[in-house]
Simulated scan of single mutants.
Amino acid sequence: MTIRRIVPNVVSQDIEESRSFYSDFLGMDVRMDEPGFLMLASPGNPTAQMTVVSTVADSWDPQTARSTLAVEVADVDAAYAAAEGQGYRVVYPLTTEPWGIRRFLVQAPDGSVINVHSHA
């Protein structure tokens, strides 16, 4: 499997407080700002990224708030087949989302939920 990028996912009860901390205090640039969802990047190293998602299920995408990491892969269909073939628990099926991401969520042996995706 070819991994293109790994992005940590922080779940927040207050997106505005999180924006203030990560952007104003740490100096990260807000790259995507949707209701209940922020993607932030380091201004000096734009590949250093993170997302912050709201715990409010109807604010953006309730599935993202379930995951601790987003792993972008070259071929999400092959990753899905590998997860199923190796017996890992898929907790959200392979889906092409309206915003252009094809993904599934899989549970790691430690209980973490990982968002495995490719751009559609």
Rank of each mutant, 00 (worst) to 15 (best):
A74G: 05
A81D: 10
T55M: 06
A82M: 08
P98L: 05
L38R: 01
A79E: 07
P93H: 01
G87A: 08
V71E: 11
L26Y: 08
F37C: 00
V113K: 03
M39N: 05
T64V: 15
I101K: 05
T96M: 10
D61F: 04
M28V: 06
V113W: 05
E84Y: 03
D33C: 00
E84S: 07
P109K: 05
M28F: 03
N45W: 10
M50N: 12
M32G: 14
A78N: 06
A82K: 11
P93W: 02
D110P: 12
Q86A: 14
A78Q: 08
A82I: 03
E97V: 14
G87S: 10
P8S: 00
L69E: 04
T47K: 14
S59C: 07
S23G: 07
Q86F: 15
R66E: 07
V73P: 00
A70C: 10
A70K: 00
G44P: 08
G85T: 04
P46F: 08
M39V: 10
V56H: 09
R89N: 14
G44K: 11
A81E: 11
G87N: 10
F104L: 03
M1A: 13
T47P: 11
V113P: 09
T47C: 12
Q13G: 15
L94Q: 04
S54D: 06
S23H: 13
A120T: 15
N9E: 00
V71K: 03
M1F: 13
R4D: 14
V7E: 05
R4V: 08
P93V: 10
R31T: 09
D24S: 11
T2C: 13
P8L: 09
S112V: 02
A82H: 12
P109I: 01
R31V: 09
A48S: 13
R4P: 01
A70R: 07
G44T: 15
T47D: 15
V52N: 06
A108W: 07
T2D: 14
E16K: 09
R89Y: 05
N45V: 11
P109L: 08
M32P: 13
S59N: 13
Y22T: 00
A108Q: 10
S12T: 10
D75F: 02
A120C: 12
R4L: 15
I3F: 01
D61T: 10
T51F: 06
P43C: 08
I3G: 00
V113T: 13
V76E: 02
D33H: 01
D14N: 11
T64H: 13
N45M: 10
D33S: 03
F21L: 12
R19C: 07
M32H: 14
Y22E: 02
M1Q: 08
I101V: 15
M1Y: 13
R102A: 11
E72N: 06
F25H: 14
G36F: 04
R19F: 06
D75A: 11
T2Q: 14
I101D: 10
T2G: 11
S12D: 06
S67D: 00
R19N: 12
F21D: 04
P46L: 00
I114E: 02
E16R: 01
V11K: 02
N9W: 00
T51M: 01
